[in-house]
Simulated assay, not measured.
Amino acid sequence: MDSGWEWDETLYAGSAEHYAVGRMPYPAVVATVLAEELGLDGQGRLLDVGCGPGSLTGVLAPLFASAVGVDADRDMLAEASRRCGELGVSNVEWRHLRAEELPSDLGPFRVVVFAQSFHWMDRAVVAGRVRGLLAPDGVWVHVSASTHQGVDGEDGLTHPRPPWDRIQELVARHLGPVRRAGRGFLPSGTPSGEQEIMIEAGYRGPVRVRCGGGVVVARSVEEIVAAVFSLSGSTPHLFGSGRPVFEAELRGLLMGASDGGLFAERTREIELVIWRP
């Protein structure tokens, strides 16, 4: 992470309720491809680390006998429980924990998955802890995805694309030009170098599998507003007393750019990066 940035519990404060509306769901093909690649047969256990509101947990848990979803935000876990209940997914246990605090007796797991979460953690520490939780034939799967925003492009869609550049400019006018993250700032964004971390921790691989993407979906003004509030750099609490003004300006921008309140986006491809201990 940037020098001086430290994780704190406000990183996604107030965002949980916006995920279900603002983030495009993981497609079912992710479960299909993972099951085929790993030979999953309904046995074993799944661990979803940094599970958030259960967006991926609910898709993958039916592939296993049981699952555990771990997150550092209680509101995210409450939303995850609610959403999985609506889906009829009942084999998940929810644990309020930071990944760095994963207990050694939590395993073993056939699959441990990280989806849009590993970059927020002390990655060397977490990689070591998870290695001790994997079953002998277990694997680590990093799900590389971006579900709040579709693919940029000039190709014609059913409705206009959301004006993401102008949205980012509006956020910067209210919160400043340097990206916010919890109580701190991330001028250079979150870190890269995952492969070096994993190899140093003793993992083998990776095997990379791509799936999904390319589907055109309609999105409403409400969905785009929720997508903005679901992001770490524009969580609701960051705006403080200025949130009503920001939200009014955001809605005005979106209504002016939309087709009667509607946008369209083409979903992004998802990459499954598989590591073995």
Rank of each mutant, 00 (worst) to 15 (best):
M1W: 04
D2L: 04
S3A: 15
G4N: 09
E6G: 10
E9M: 06
L11T: 12
Y12W: 13
Y12A: 08
S15M: 11
S15E: 11
A16K: 09
H18E: 07
H18P: 00
Y19A: 13
A20V: 12
G22C: 10
R23I: 05
R23H: 12
M24R: 15
A28E: 15
V30T: 10
V33N: 00
V33A: 08
V33Y: 00
E36F: 02
E36C: 05
D41L: 02
Q43G: 13
L46Q: 00
V49M: 01
C51R: 02
G52V: 03
G52E: 10
G54F: 05
L56N: 01
L56G: 00
T57W: 09
V59C: 05
A61C: 13
S66A: 15
V70D: 11
A72N: 11
D73V: 03
D73S: 13
D75Q: 12
D75W: 06
A80I: 08
S81E: 15
S81L: 12
G88H: 13
G88F: 13
G88C: 10
V89L: 06
V89W: 09
S90F: 04
N91Q: 14
V92C: 09
R98S: 12
E101R: 15
S104Y: 07
D105Y: 10
L106P: 06
G107Y: 08
V113K: 06
F114I: 07
F114E: 06
Q116V: 06
F118H: 08
H119I: 01
H119S: 10
W120R: 04
R123C: 03
V126I: 03
R131H: 10
L133I: 11
D137N: 12
D137S: 14
W140E: 09
V141I: 04
V143F: 12
A145F: 08
T147H: 14
H148K: 10
G150R: 02
G150L: 02
V151H: 05
G153N: 05
D155N: 09
T158L: 14
R166V: 05
R166S: 15
R166E: 14
I167P: 00
V171H: 11
H174M: 11
L175F: 08
L175I: 04
L175G: 03
L175P: 01
G176R: 13
P177A: 15
V178W: 00
R179P: 03
R180I: 01
G182R: 00
G182T: 11
T190D: 10
T190Q: 12
S192C: 04
E196P: 00
M198I: 05
E200P: 00
G202D: 07
Y203C: 09
V209E: 04
R210A: 14
G213Y: 02
V217Y: 01
A218I: 07
V221A: 05
V221W: 03
V221Y: 02
I224H: 00
V225D: 02
V225C: 12
L231I: 05
S232I: 06
T235K: 15
F239E: 08
G240Y: 02
S241R: 15
S241P: 02
G242E: 08
G242R: 14
L250F: 04
R251S: 05
L254Q: 06
L262I: 07
R266W: 04
T267M: 13
R268Q: 13
R268I: 01
E271T: 14
